[in-house]
Each structure stands twice: as C-alpha cells, then as structure tokens.
Design a protein around this nucleic acid. Sequence first.
DNA 1: TATCTGACGATAG
DNA 2: CCTATCGCCAGAT
Length: 97
Amino acid sequence: MAGPDFEEAVRAVVRSLRPGDVATYGEVAAEAGFPGAARAVGNLLRRSTGLPWWRVVSAGGRLAPGAEAEHAARLQAEGVPFTGTGKVAPAALRRAR
DNA sequence: TATCTGACGATAG
DNA sequence: CCTATCGCCAGAT
C-alpha cells in the first residue's frame, strides 16, 4: 500500500489546507488513508518542499521541533491564535478539516 | 530479511 | 507544564 500512494495522498491533504486552518499530523495521516502513520507524515513534510507544512502541527498544538520560531511566525501571520506557551490554541485545531 | 531513524501519539509520573 | 516510555508507520541502509 505504501510507496508513491502515501506521498501523493499526504501531499493532496496538506495542499487542501486553507490559511488559518490547522491540522495535526495524525489527522493528515488518517485523512490521507493511512491512520497511525502520523510519524511518517512528519518525516515526509520535513523533506518535502512547496507545501504549506506550517499548517500541520503535532497533537495538542505543539510546533515542529527545530523550527518552532519559523513555524509560529507563519501561523501567526495567518491569524492562528496561540495559547501563550508557544502552542496553537485548541480552538484552531477544531477548525482543521 | 533485519535494524535504525524521525517535524508523531498517548499515557504515566 | 516537564520528561520518560512504549507503540505505530513508512523509508532508508
């Protein structure tokens, strides 16, 4: 099942995210048809280019380790609310999808 | 085929 | 809110 399909599906889902809309890695994986592959999604987004990767966050609204500053900046630029502790507000995660 | 890696997720302390 | 652990998956070596 995995292979080109996985990459294609994940890219399609991430590309469908609109400004201000935030989804979790797990959500993207499930939406792409690979439930439980959240880790693989993160790995793919990390090396992939040309995708709104900043609209995808870890469960609980945590940002990508090693790029938190850029991640937060891009999200805030789209009007995404934060909880003050450097995490995306729970309300914003509900809108994802 | 076996083993390791990682922008994950959930739970426990 | 923090770190520590374990489980899960796709890709690379």
